[in-house]
């Protein structure tokens, strides 16, 4: 635990944090542009060339709006809600391996902030805390629509966490590790986990949509029924933080999907042409980002294509389809891993 190590980690944290915020900021712009593209419109084009400064304008607008805290609300918790939302959204970035280690002057600098051996469990811990922000915010507003939105959000997140957890257990069984860095490193070449765990990957992606409260699972903020959902009473930057946390969650879940199932920073065949480890590390970072951007596009594409579920359909999908499917996936994975023993048992 030298000072160098500490400084290096702090720099890495700052870089990851700023990249997360930057990507989330421009996701809002991308969302508008993609929505416009899918609906045959032009989208924002006034602020800067191609509307590239639109997120800046949005941020200024958010900050300038009047701050309203309802009189009947629980003030401390009302302010705490968006804060917790933002905090839990930013916490997951530390276990993502952003690339291989970079070698500077004989010392290896891994591009992962914390390669803990319980990485996946850490992810789940943070995920399960994410619901507090929405719940506290929704309850503290003292508004029926907010409370309904908060309850919808939390029951939805609790329900889909189960299927997500079981689909991840199958992944842990095949990889034999809980460390995200190790999982990413195992997927070199074509050994992507999506080819080994296609069903688990599908379930994980669906659950990721539900966990981030994105369409078609955006019932917590279903404006036709609940005005604005859990953030009905919020204004100004507190509302901004709630909305922004959703984009951060989307970025992080894209990164997690890419790391767990789509090879992380690995790209097949690249090792044939590039041999310098530092260049490979930087290229790996670029590849990971390409995958992340692809998934963010996928998230948005789905949002502007599929209509919203009804609430009973959402619960049926979670409990009656995804959980049995993920258990089936678990059993099949186990059977496949023990196939030699099973065959030996019957053949003998």
């Amino acid at each position: 635990m030298t000072l160098d190590f500490l400084i290096y980690k702090i720099i890495l944290v700052l870089i990851v944090f700023s990249i997360t915020l930057l990507v989330a900021t421009y996701s809002t712009y991308a969302e508008r542009k993609i929505a416009a593209f899918l609906q045959d419109r032009i989208g924002p084009d006034r602020a800067g060339p191609f509307g590239i400064l639109q997120p800046l304008a949005d941020a200024v607008k958010m900050f300038m709006k009047e701050e309203i805290i309802p009189n009947v609300s629980n003030k401390a918790l009302f302010v705490l809600g968006p804060g917790i939302c933002m905090l839990t959204a930013c916490m997951t970035g530390v276990i993502i391996p952003w690339g291989k280690s970079i070698n500077i002057g004989g010392t290896d600098y891994p591009l992962q902030i914390a390669d803990v051996n319980i990485g996946i469990l850490y992810l789940f811990g943070v995920l399960s805390l994410g619901v507090y922000g929405i719940m506290i915010g929704g309850w503290a507003s003292n508004n029926k629509y907010s409370l309904l939105g908060a309850i919808r959000a939390s029951s939805q997140m609790i329900s889909y966490e189960v299927a997500m957890g079981i689909s991840i257990i199958a992944l842990v069984m095949t990889t034999g590790t809980l460390s995200t860095g190790e999982i990413a490193a195992q997927q070199h070449g074509w050994h992507w986990n999506v080819l080994i765990q296609p069903l688990g990957c599908l379930i994980f992606i669906i659950c990721a949509f539900a966990e981030t409260n994105r369409a078609p699972f955006d019932l917590p903020e279903c404006e036709t029924e609940l005005v604005g959902g859990y953030h009905t009473e919020y204004s100004s930057m507190k509302l901004g933080l709630f909305l922004f946390a959703e984009y951060i969650n989307m970025f992080i879940s894209s990164a997690v999907i890419a790391t767990f199932y789509f090879g992380g920073y690995n790209m097949p065949l690249i090792g044939r042409w590039v041999h310098d480890p530092n260049v490979l590390a930087i290229l790996g970072f670029v590849f990971l980002f390409m995958k992340i951007v692809g998934f963010i596009f996928f998230f948005m594409w789905v949002r502007w294509t599929l209509p919203r579920f009804r609430y009973d359909q959402l619960m049926n999908l979670g409990w009656k389809i995804l959980i049995p499917l993920s258990i089936l996936n678990l059993v099949l994975t186990g059977a496949w891993m023990m196939r030699h023993e099973i065959i030996n048992y019957f053949v003998k």
């Binding site: 469990l121 811990g125 399960s128 939390s154």
Partner: peptide, 22 residues
């Protein structure tokens, strides 16, 4: 530690909060 957070803080207390809010 991780399981403690997931099970107690993440699952059980969320249900507690749920019930008390309702």
């Amino acid at each position: 530690a991780a399981v403690h957070i997931i099970v107690y803080a993440g699952a059980i207390m969320v249900l507690f909060l749920f019930v008390i809010m309702l």
